[in-house]
Structures are given as C-alpha cells and as structure tokens.
Write a protein that binds this DNA or RNA. Structure first.
Length: 420
RNA sequence: GCCGCUAUCGUCCAGGGGUCUAGGACGCCGGAUUCUCAGUCCGGAAACCGGGGUUCGAAUCCCCGUAGCGGUACCA
C-alpha cells in the first residue's frame, strides 16, 4: 500500500497525489491503489484523541512556544518539556512522554536506535481547535490501515519515536521501519522531499529513459555486492534487499545518469527507440522517423538529443553563420561540385552507394577527407555536427541533397570563400 | 544549544581485523579508431576525516574530536 507522506504544502492534496501517481506510472513502478492518508481525515483521529485525553495519556496545555522555551531554560536544554494541564481545558493537546527509559526504533537499515525519553518534549498532537498534527495522524493512520512496513527518508528517523509513543499510548502495534538515506544535489543540498516528484518530471523532460533512471537510482545508497553497474530491472528486483541499503546520503550525479542512459538508448530496439523519440517530440513514429533514428542511435545520450541530430531530414538546414564561415572556404566549392556530380548518376541511393561514389573524392582532389565531408555536412544540415555523412546523405535523399548542395554553391558564388 | 544519524578516489558503489602496494563505475587526463560530434577500445592520475586506544596486526573494533545532515513548530 502506498502512502504519500512528503507532499508540497503549496499544492492541494489532489495535485500532489496526481503528480506523484503520474511520476510512478511513467517510471513503470507498480503500486497498489488504496486509500490515501490525509491529515484532514478527522473522524477516527478525533476518537483517538478523545481516548488519550480520557486516559490521561494526553492533556490540554495552554503553554506557548515562549513558555516552553522558558521551561527549558530552567530545567536544562537536554530536558524535554513537561507541561501542566490547563485549568480551563483549553490549549493544544500534548502527549505525555515518560521521564525514564528510551524509545527504541528497530530500523531495518540502521539497527537499533535509542532515543532518551527525557529529552523529548511532551509534543503537541493536536491544535487548540482539535485538528491533528502530522506525527499523530500518521501513527493513527498506519495502525488503522494495517501498515506493516514503512520505508521512508532518513529525515523521519527522529520523528519515529514520537509515532511510536502515540502508537503505544493507543495500544496499537507498530510497523517495521526502514529509513533510507536522503539524496542530495551536486550542490550538497537536499534533493528529495517536495522536489521528489518534480525531479522525476525534470528527468523526463531532459530525455531520460525510465529504465535508466531505475537502474541509476537503485545504485544510489545500494550496491549489488559485486561490481556490476548495468542491471536490468528484473535483476534489480531480484537482488535488491532493503537491509543492504547504505546509511550515508548520496549525491545525485547527472553525468553518470547520462552515461547510463546512453547505454540504454543504444540497446533499445529501433521500434521502441523511434516510439520514444516520437513521444518526446510529438511527431508520428513513421518510417521516415525510423530511418532517421537508425542513423542517430549510436550518438545520442538522451532522447532530447536525438532531434537536433536528425531535424535536417525534416526541416530546412539551420542558419549557422559561424559554421558556414569555418567550413565554406578554400576548396569547399570545388569539393561540393565534385560531390554533386558523383551523386547525380546514382540509382540506388543507399549509404553504401553514396560512400562508393563520395569516398574516392578526397584522394582524387588531393584534399583531406574532412575538407570534403564537412562542406557536405554544412550544406545539408547547416551545422558541423550530424550523424555519419554517408548515412545522412542517403536518408536525406538524392533530390534534396543535390538541391541543398546547389543552394550552398549559389551562396558561395555570392560571397566567395575566404582563403586561409 | 539539545537529541539523533553519517564519515573510503571529485561523485556513486565494493571491501566489515591480516589476501589492501584499497577494487569497480561515472567524470577527468592521455592515446587509438586519419568525416564532425558522439560512441567504442587502450592507458593514467585520483581516497580509507583527525587523534587516541584494543590487537602480533586496523580502512575494518572502541573512545574522543571535527565536519555534514536530520529532528528539535499549535509544518508535513
């Protein structure tokens, strides 16, 4: 059963839930749909509160934050606040915390963690108006929903004794806990919590594949024991054990995710690859897109990087004066003429055929290969970067390639090449 | 301040008393692949937070310190 705990207080519960479920679905993570815990779910909370008040396990206390501070100044900083029931029955509701002993959390990852009761305040479980607070609400909900395992961020470890105390006071059994280390950004700042789902959205927008994200994230705070890095989701599921999770927080390293994503991209069957690119760009996954993807697959690290590499097949060459000036000089015109003439008689316009006729040109003209290939690249794409030149020409097609070379030649005639 | 957690290359993960002259991955640097970029292949630099113990022996166990993080709300 999924319970969404860390939500963005700026948004409504519905928005939070929708965003998180959406992220989970995209990531391909299963969850059992069940009731979601909400602090607003008052009825059973009120009943539990009543029980606690009646048994004396909790009491109303009118003390303000300043009063608590003053109390501590008097009794010592390591001493938890102990209040006195207000005479008029007003004020926040506090749970009585024992003075002796420890509340121990049996954590699957951290082992036995002891918290001295005397240093915990009689903490507030409900406001003066009766609305309940988080540590009370989760504890009651866990019990009522029959939660048996709680896996959550490390930042809740020191909240756990409070929840345990509530559970105990109510006579409920406690779930088993596993507190996993938090994730930090490269800047060292916390990256999880309210940015958790937003981050998934960002990774999705950046063109990462769900499978790569699953693999990468699994390796944060956990290792398979041997030195395997690329693990299929099946393998992850088989080998992952919560008790093997490390205890220290990890820094999210996008460089490594990029590398890993590239590996997954290259291993994707062309059909799936094309579908991913289609979904990302909002195009139809037709045959042309498939051909384009085929020549870009070895080069892109993310889905987002594919389109810039193949857009020249679908759109006019981009305007890039810098690239033009860098490449279109000296013998570029001569080379382009030769290429055009070599291409013209071709019937079978495949990458192999194109290579067959263009390949010998550098030697014939006594030019370095780059002096021939780069002008072609700039002529058909407008840029100096593209998939392999023979493949690019082949997929663009004979007529379009020649038309673009002609256009380049015309522009060259207007503004003659600058010699080095 | 108090309570708690954590501490191995820049980053992630191994190693949990001798096999550690500390292993793998990303990144970085160098070389190769003489069409760009990317990819791929080969090579290299790079770490046990500090101090005390325990022990024949400590990266590994204990203590102290330091640092980082979390909690300390009538937030979640």
């Amino acid at each position: 059963m999924l319970r969404i705990e860390d939500t963005d207080p700026e948004r409504s519960t519905e928005e939070n839930v929708a965003q998180i479920l959406d992220a989970l679905e995209w990531l391909g993570l299963d969850w059992d749909e069940g009731p979601l815990s909400q602090v607003e779910r008052a009825p059973s909370h009120a009943a539990a509160l009543e029980r606690l008040l009646e048994s004396g396990a909790a009491y109303r206390d009118a003390a303000t934050a300043d009063d608590v501070k003053a109390w501590k100044a008097e009794h010592g900083a390591d001493r938890g606040y102990r209040g006195t029931p207000s005479a008029d029955g007003t004020g926040a509701i506090r749970l009585r915390v024992p003075d002796e002993g420890d509340t121990v959390v049996e954590d699957l990852i951290r082992g036995e963690v002891r918290f001295p009761n005397r240093s915990y305040d009689d903490f507030v479980i409900a406001r003066g108006d009766g609305s309940v607070l988080y540590n009370f609400a989760v504890a009651v909900d866990d019990a009522e929903m029959g939660i048996t395992e709680v896996i959550r961020g490390d930042d809740h470890l020191s909240n756990t004794p409070k929840q345990l105390l509530v559970l105990r006071a109510l006579g409920f059994e406690s779930p088993r806990y596993a507190h996993v280390p938090l994730l930090h950004g490269p800047d060292g700042k916390k990256l999880s919590k309210r940015h958790g789902a937003a981050s998934v959205q960002e990774l999705r927008d950046a063109g990462y594949l769900p499978a790569a994200i699953r693999n990468y994230v699994a390796l944060l705070g956990w290792g398979p024991g041997d030195d395997e890095t690329l693990l299929s989701t099946e393998e992850l599921v088989r080998r992952f054990r919560p008790e093997d999770v490390g205890r220290s927080s990890a820094v999210f390293d996008e460089k490594k995710l990029r590398w890993m994503n590239g590996r997954y991209m290259r291993e994707l069957p062309l059909g799936e690859y094309t579908a991913a690119v289609a979904a990302f760009t909002g195009r139809e996954p037709d045959e042309k897109l498939g051909e384009a993807c085929a020549i870009a697959q070895e080069k892109a690290q993310t889905v987002a990087e594919v389109w810039p590499l193949i857009r020249f097949i679908f759109e006019e060459p981009v305007e890039d004066e810098k690239a033009w000036r860098k490449i279109m000089k000296n013998d570029a015109g001569t080379a382009l003429e030769a290429v055009k003439e070599a291409l013209r008689p071709l019937d079978q316009f495949t990458a192999e055929a194109v290579e067959g006729v263009i390949g010998p040109i550098p030697e014939r003209l006594d030019l370095k290969p780059g002096k021939v290939y780069q002008p072609i690249r700039v002529a058909i794409t407008g840029t100096t970067v593209s998939p392999g030149i023979f493949e690019s020409v082949a997929v663009l097609g004979k007529d379009e390639t020649i038309a673009r070379i002609d256009a380049a030649l015309a522009k060259l005639a207007d503004s003659p090449p600058i010699p080095d």
